Computed example of a mutant assay.
Amino acid sequence: MTQNVKISEIVATRTIAEIIADYPVVQDFFINYNLQELQQNLTVAHALEKMMPEQLAEFGLDSFSLTAELAKFMATLVDNQEEREKVQTITIIGGRNKEGQPEDVKLTMTAGEVVSIVGPTGSGKSRLLADIECLAQGDTPTKRQILINEHLLSDEERFDIGNKLVAQLSQNMNFVMDLNVADFLAMHAKSRLCENADQVVERCFVCANELAGEKFTLDTKVTQLSGGQSRALMIADTAYMSASPIVLIDEIENAGIDRKQAISLLTENEKIVLISTHDPLLALSADKRIVIKNGGIHKVMETSAEEIESLSDIEKLDALMLEIRQQLRRGERVRPLKISCS
């Protein structure tokens, strides 16, 4: 039985309420056709029989064609989800730096891997993130190519809104909808067809509060969240709801959140994470780091055993700096420092 036949059987045999329970975003399909008043205890065909033909004619449809459109819509949702699950690797093929010199690079990253991007301010770190975000095919200033599962992408694959392969968390995150946190997460869970949506919303909320320095509630308006709280909310959302297998993060150290926990959370959910950073702790915690110089990829470095060993001392220094920040936030005097790095 093909997927399309299976979806057609669901549309033909299940009630509207049952379909919406399994595919919540289908409710938006009916709203788009002004059919939100359909009797949900009936199948689609039976519910449409009770309508005036003029209501469907308004959209140039009849009962048969609208049922077919619904089946096509649902099949697209399912196909997109299956396609996302197949993404296993992303590969960067080097282009040219600001002086036109070639980047002799072919770097492949796999699910669960973290790669840091380091270099001076203005060196081109954000340009690399932009190339990955748009899945460049030699059509950006750097002429880089991005492969998915070792193959080039068509324009249709690159710009498919319903099957977005890359999620980006930028330094500045601003919400434009005046929803509270609960409604915002519920909307995302619905649009992404999350199973057990209420549990997923609760998990995202708890996780975001663990990451954020200052707690917030489900009733808090998303427009009232601080920069750190917004970043924490979107990291949790990306980890638990987003099907995008590739996550780009720009300078998470400036967000005021538990950055190591954030990265760990994303990789546990089998994301490929690339993070632009000036933070030694994040840079050395990655599996590899890309060094950017003069607008190009200068080199790719594996994290060495000695660097991994030095992380314990770096973590002690980081914890010390965190304690100083907390003392200042609480309005306390900074206590004498005790540094005991080996």
Rank of each mutant, 00 (worst) to 15 (best):
D318P: 05
P141V: 01
S191R: 11
L284V: 08
S230P: 03
D104Y: 09
P280N: 10
Q326P: 00
L185H: 08
T217E: 15
A243K: 12
D287C: 11
R192H: 14
V118E: 01
L128C: 05
G227H: 05
T15H: 07
Q229N: 12
N209E: 12
S226R: 04
L152N: 14
L35W: 03
Q137P: 07
F30M: 08
L320H: 02
T2F: 13
N163Y: 03
L107P: 00
Y33M: 02
D198Q: 08
N180F: 07
A262K: 04
L284D: 07
N80M: 06
A186L: 14
F205Y: 13
I246K: 02
T223H: 03
M109R: 03
L211R: 02
D160W: 02
E49I: 08
A186N: 12
N163F: 04
H151W: 08
M241L: 10
L185N: 06
Q326L: 07
K215W: 09
I297N: 03
D287Y: 08
A262F: 14
G119F: 05
D219N: 15
E82S: 06
Y23M: 08
Q27C: 06
S123R: 04
V273P: 00
D219T: 14
T89H: 05
I31D: 13
L152E: 15
L147D: 01
S226Q: 09
L248D: 03
P141Y: 02
E82Q: 13
N269Q: 15
V300Y: 01
N294Q: 12
Q171Y: 04
A75W: 00
S276D: 02
R330N: 14
S264W: 10
F205V: 06
L66G: 03
P24T: 06
Q88M: 07
L107G: 03
S312K: 15
G122R: 08
S244G: 00
L61Q: 10
L320E: 04
T140S: 14
A186R: 11
G124D: 02
S276K: 00
E58K: 06
K316C: 07
E69W: 09
I263F: 14
I324F: 01
G95V: 03
Q81R: 11
A262V: 12
G100I: 10
E202N: 14
A186W: 11
V201K: 00
A286I: 01
N32D: 11
I161C: 07
S244V: 02
E150A: 14
S154Y: 04
